[in-house]
Nucleic acid binder design. Structure first.
Lengths: 349, 349
DNA sequence: GCCCTCGATGTTTACGTAAACATACGCGAC
DNA sequence: GTCGCGTATGTTTACGTAAACATCGAGGGC
């Protein structure tokens, strides 16, 4: 007699899962009473309750969440669509989302998109539409998804991170512009005549905002705007930019659009004998944990990813609870400048 | 007349979701025919199929995955329990898991545990037990969870990462010992008399294995074993260790149990005027993307997180498909040593 | 003692889907 | 023409849960 899952448990749970009916039969009550005990409802006499609990333990009963979801019409799950977990920001945001969602009794379903093509994104949304989620948080350039006919399934609540689509969706993001302004002003305040800039990739809204704010601050201050060097977030691209900047005699201050690229800058300047901060000041963006231990420790703009995650969860939960769609609007989380050893007044100043 | 969700769509979808019955009514067929069309079954004449598809489009029909899961008894979802996404390794592993699971038609549900207390872990498993998952991947010290009465819900398939519980569970992990051996041997081969070591936290199985392998290599080679310095993975702890090591005149080579701590070492040595690699060689572990841009570029042990994630998914899918429980065994992913600029022969050598 | 009330528990039903079974129709073979 | 078979479609049912409704018995007020 072939039997799988035997495993010698009293009561011999066999192949299939234990349902309320099984518990009810063993406890000698109706399945409705089991349901009442399972959900902690009042109106069950304690002796009955004990019997049911004992039967549950013996059989190893666990509620079937599919049936519950079907019954209630809710899944208690939030979907997160993202392009990559590789960046510090994304993984920290996701972690904060997961933590806060868990505190509210929601689980997180992750849908990664390996290559951000229109097809893949469309596929993710389709899958997500069929998926057991009550709401969706999109951590991604929304312009990648809402060109063309792609649209979020109706009735799904959405919050978007890293986007300028605040006119159409609920957007939560770090205040990129404010952060970049702080970085550039800090360098100008130190006495630098102007500030060079290494950008993020052009497809990044956050990168665009930072670059735009850098330009604005310089223009407002009436300073020359050097041509920006294009990076792609990687330390390698920062390194390449650094090698180029090391040749620019007039360059005394650089604002890198993230910390990784700043790290590349530091290495390039070190190799070319340009001392930081004596010859060149460098400011990054993100405040990754390692930034304090770069050589020299990096002055950078601190992003509060945990707060971004918290507000994302708050936003979707509000939508779920009120039953409203995604109310347009942008919720910006402030940044703070962390001054460390990579910035100083220019020597000539 | 107050109505929510109106939004001017033809057919005026109102509050609730569209079911097969709605589509069937509009198309003038039975719901079973809608089901057949939805699942691409044969035996539906093309004119009927077209009618149904048109009705689906008009109503914006999406299948209800809760009902499907209830019907099929499967969720097509894998749960991932983890302690933190903050470390490069974990987030990269999770990303790989998510990507490979998606390729197999599975989604990922994330259950983070903010503080690894017994209660929290137990709670996570309970929640996970009730959750809509077919299998679970645990990225965590298993000894934290299986002391005491905590046990995985029966019938749930499990793969564990970062654990020595290969005798009880399916374990997938980087071959920590092999990697650490490569690192230490590399330093000995360069001519260093011995190798100092900065450990990971004691609660980390991976850290323990690396430290153990470091000790074994030194003992096998008949070299003195310096007292290990205790770190906690953070750059800060590496920095503290570095300040201490800078005072040790005999210290010409250090193996740090991860790259972050190696970064802290580099900064400490730089501050104390100990040149790397001329005075001291440093090797890390992980090969985070930034490691190549440290000053100097870090020699380190490369972990293939993507492969770990792939094998995790393969493991649980196999369990799901065969219906077996978690077969004990340890699946080790090999590492490779990446030699960069932070190691050299000792000056006296 | 009778009826009413209320508390404890049982029964019915619906949630959305899809397998299993049932029906109905058309067409070819005799 | 009728029988039989196969194809297209409809009907019934089950999945596990829990709300809504039903029942049953005990205790109290008159």
């Amino acid at each position: 007699m072939v039997e799988r899952g035997g495993s010698g448990v009293p009561g011999g749970r066999r192949k299939q899962r234990v349902s309320m009916a099984d518990v009810a039969k063993l406890a000698g009550v109706s399945s409705q009473t089991v349901s009442r005990v399972s959900n902690g409802h009042a109106g069950v006499i304690s002796s009955t309750r004990e019997q049911v609990l004992a039967a549950m333990r013996e059989l190893g009963y666990r509620p079937n969440s599919a049936a519950r979801a079907l019954r209630y019409g809710r899944f208690n799950t939030i979907g997160v669509i993202l392009f990559s977990l590789a960046s510090t920001g994304n993984s920290r945001t996701v972690e904060a989302i997961a933590t806060h969602a868990a505190a509210e009794g929601y689980a997180i379903t992750l849908i990664p998109i390996d290559v951000p093509t229109q097809d893949n994104v469309l596929g993710a949304f389709t899958r997500m539409g069929e998926l057991a989620v009550d709401a969706v948080i999109v951590i991604m350039e929304i312009h990648l998804v809402d060109t063309g006919t792609v649209q979020l399934p109706p009735g799904v609540h959405v919050v978007v991170v890293d986007s300028d689509a605040g006119d159409r969706y609920s957007v939560v993001d770090t205040d990129q512009a404010e952060g970049a302004r702080k970085a550039v002003r800090h360098l100008l305040d130190l006495g630098h005549r102007t500030v060079w800039h290494v950008t993020g990739p052009e497809t990044s809204f956050a990168g665009q905002r930072r670059t735009q704010a850098w330009r604005e601050v310089l223009e407002e201050a009436g300073r020359p705007v050097p041509p920006p060097l294009h990076g792609d977030w990687s330390a390698e691209s920062g390194y390449a930019a650094g090698l180029a900047l090391a040749e620019q005699d007039g360059c005394t201050a650089v604002f890198a659009s993230n910390d990784q690229m700043a790290l590349g800058l530091l290495r390039a300047f070190h190799e070319r004998g340009r001392r930081v901060p004596e010859d060149v000041s460098v400011v990054g963006f993100d405040d990754i944990p390692d930034a304090a231990f770069f050589v020299p420790p990096l002055t950078t703009v601190h992003q509060d990813f945990a707060e971004v995650g918290r507000r994302c969860v708050r936003g979707v939960l509000q939508q779920i609870r009120t039953g409203d769609g995604s109310p347009p609007g942008t919720d910006l989380v402030p940044t703070s400048l962390v001054v460390r050893g990579s910035t100083a007044a220019p020597r000539s100043g």
